[in-house]
Design a protein around this nucleic acid. Sequence first.
DNA 1: CCTATTTTTTTGGTATACCAAATATGACGA
DNA 2: TCGTCATATTTGGTATACCAAAAAAATAGG
Lengths: 215, 215
Amino acid sequence: MALAIGDAHTPLTKMVKDALRERILNAEFEPGTRLVEGRISEEMGVSRMPVREALRELAAEGLVKIIPRRGATVSMPAADQKMDLIEVRATLEALNARLAARRKDPERIEELQRVLAAGESDIEKSDFSEMRAHNDAFHTALGEVSGNVTLQDLIRTLRDQTAMLFKQDDPVKVRETWREHADILRAVIAGDEELAAILASRHVYNAVEPEQATD
Amino acid sequence: MALAIGDAHTPLTKMVKDALRERILNAEFEPGTRLVEGRISEEMGVSRMPVREALRELAAEGLVKIIPRRGATVSMPAADQKMDLIEVRATLEALNARLAARRKDPERIEELQRVLAAGESDIEKSDFSEMRAHNDAFHTALGEVSGNVTLQDLIRTLRDQTAMLFKQDDPVKVRETWREHADILRAVIAGDEELAAILASRHVYNAVEPEQATD
DNA sequence: CCTATTTTTTTGGTATACCAAATATGACGA
DNA sequence: TCGTCATATTTGGTATACCAAAAAAATAGG
């Protein structure tokens, strides 16, 4: 009993969450499986509270579905929701780019250029983990150029929700990705709202839709 | 001690939340005021748990800001965030209408027409509370026509966040609102994505910006 | 074999109580 | 007066324990 990974001092909620997430992603728990609080808490040797919390958070991430009075079940993310997510995210990223092109705050733009350069140098070094960080940084910075905090929050949430569904770091694709970043930034600097919006939207579809669509 | 409104059997969390919300909206608590869990729970005669929960929910609504290890403070929504919210909501409502016009599920459309008729009859009867319910129903139904659940969720959240900031039921405006609903529905039925999107977007600006909105 | 009823599980919601870590506050000495 | 250290508060996180309402499972009846 008790969690296999007994890192004292990391919140139990997080441990429970990670454990569940892994099992879900490993298909150890198939979609539709009921996740009974009591059972999990017993199995992991924690009280129900951190389990509840973990389930809630997983629900926010989209891995679990909670129906009132029915409890939590493993939800099959991908498939049906996948296109929905992409559609929404593309739309918001487009709005974001449009606003960025409209406001184009000089300082933030500089920051963007810095991140862009960093990302491009990561490609040379094939440093994927740095690249991922810079990718996030680029999108974050772009969000800051637009200046719309609400929008940023939503996009971040959507990014979290799609993150694990479509993650992959194909060397070819990565190069493509940063080329697109450069294009978007160029459009933003030029103040071409329409172009920036279109490029940003397309960027989402490209990054997220590998080759073989599961749907 | 204890909540003034002692409705047994309504969750304490909700009572706490409502009480806090009211005081915040009444400016009894000014923006920036610290909301100390212990103090509130004592004052209202409940334990800290429902207070925490209430604060979290209020944070989700945007009335309160929670900074890690710093606790909750009253945030001043409106002003700066207002346009952000509207911008995002308008964009998403536009996407929603666009998708609705694309898929136009016959059954849902019927539902929409029913709600539209109900809303229009509310106008005759000047039944504002019914009207508000039908207004929600209309938007919900429109969301269902589009078929994008993710989108629906986001829009609902945004609607919640804007609800109390811009609420008003002016008899004249109300008539306008339902005329716009009719226009949107017409565009959806006609399958005119572009028009539906534009009308839906404008609808948000109109409903939310008392004077007028020509963006 | 299917349905109605009873029993057992679960979920939600809450109280109470600790504790460690982080923050706020106040007193103190430079 | 100012920076620093000690002390008091708070927040987060968790355990444990109840309870009512709702759902699921088991059982009785037709």
